[in-house]
Design a protein around this nucleic acid. Sequence first.
DNA 1: GCAATATTCGAGCGAATACTCACATTTCTC
DNA 2: GAGAAATGTGAGTATTCGCTCGAATATTGC
Lengths: 197, 197
Amino acid sequence: MKQAQINPRKTPTQARAKASVQAILQAAAHILERGGLETLTTNYVAEVAGVSIGTLYQYYPSKEAILTDIIRQKRARLLEDLQAATLEMHNESFDVTLAKLLHAAVESQLHWPKLSKALEYAESFLPLEQETRVLNEQINQTIVAFLEHHQVADAPVAARDLVSALRGMIDGAGLAGETDARALFERALKLAKGYLA
Amino acid sequence: MKQAQINPRKTPTQARAKASVQAILQAAAHILERGGLETLTTNYVAEVAGVSIGTLYQYYPSKEAILTDIIRQKRARLLEDLQAATLEMHNESFDVTLAKLLHAAVESQLHWPKLSKALEYAESFLPLEQETRVLNEQINQTIVAFLEHHQVADAPVAARDLVSALRGMIDGAGLAGETDARALFERALKLAKGYLA
DNA sequence: GCAATATTCGAGCGAATACTCACATTTCTC
DNA sequence: GAGAAATGTGAGTATTCGCTCGAATATTGC
């Protein structure tokens, strides 16, 4: 089991190169949403992206590097949304901030459930790059800070429980074909408030 | 993407053949718990099991067939436990039966978290055999019946929410290194009772 | 004990797939 | 517009891995 290189190979400067990289990432995400991890092959990604296999390897040294980059992007986006949700938490009630957090969580997962699940599973065996590990830590800290601010006992454990339970629930709903974010959000709220009561 | 044959090839009759099959299943589970789906190769399973690759293919026509068989066994065991938990539900309080159910859920997942997660992911792309689909349906029905017996509104949706949320939470705890089933059980109880309150 | 049957063995085949490289094309720079 | 730099190409290589098959060995039934 050789250790795959995961850091991007070179950064595109020209516009068409940036477009190639975007096409590769989008194609990979699309393939994951359609068929899951086992259908993700580098040749297929290149084909769907409309670039040659050589171009793909100009920017990513391995299949794992592509996966890692997608995970990094998703996590960065989620962190941004969670931080926005807790920005005013000192002036807001517990309920209001919690609602904002759960809204962000539902939006980040419900619409691409197979992709979410595939990335989540991939994360469990990929050697994540430094940057992504930091993002994950910041996401966790954001939740922990929110819980502690409202005197929740055992905030680190509660954060982990809530995050993993909600991930499971949202994915479960998405895979079952649910698309009504509002309805799911209400149930997520029940789950979280119930656990924290 | 060819469709893999998943039904067992032939059933062992002699004792040593049964031992071979058991060794294969155990080896596969062990490999999944150690390294996940991408480290599960048929040659490696045979090696760990201490049988030749030819022997493996006497009983399983494909790698998928092995995975499917492991899933079937786990599900059968879980269903048994859940049915035992709800056996007396007509004479018991909601809380007592719920506790039994959650106990079974925690026991079935906490001790082999990587295996659980790998199987769960595998289930999302494998063409499950009839028998396993029936088992899954019975598991679901057991939960739905319990919820309906206690007048829970929207029992099918609630059952799906709870099952997927608890799966996520238990896996999350296991992967984080928790081993205290009792402590986790208490939190699972909070989660479930909170959601259903 | 002897045939019939069940089981085991593992070298090796074929297909899938990650990845390279020498060369072609486009874009930038001045 | 010319040279340099960046980008794109895809046939081809190397390796991994699922799986077969023909031959050897063990067990059973009579």
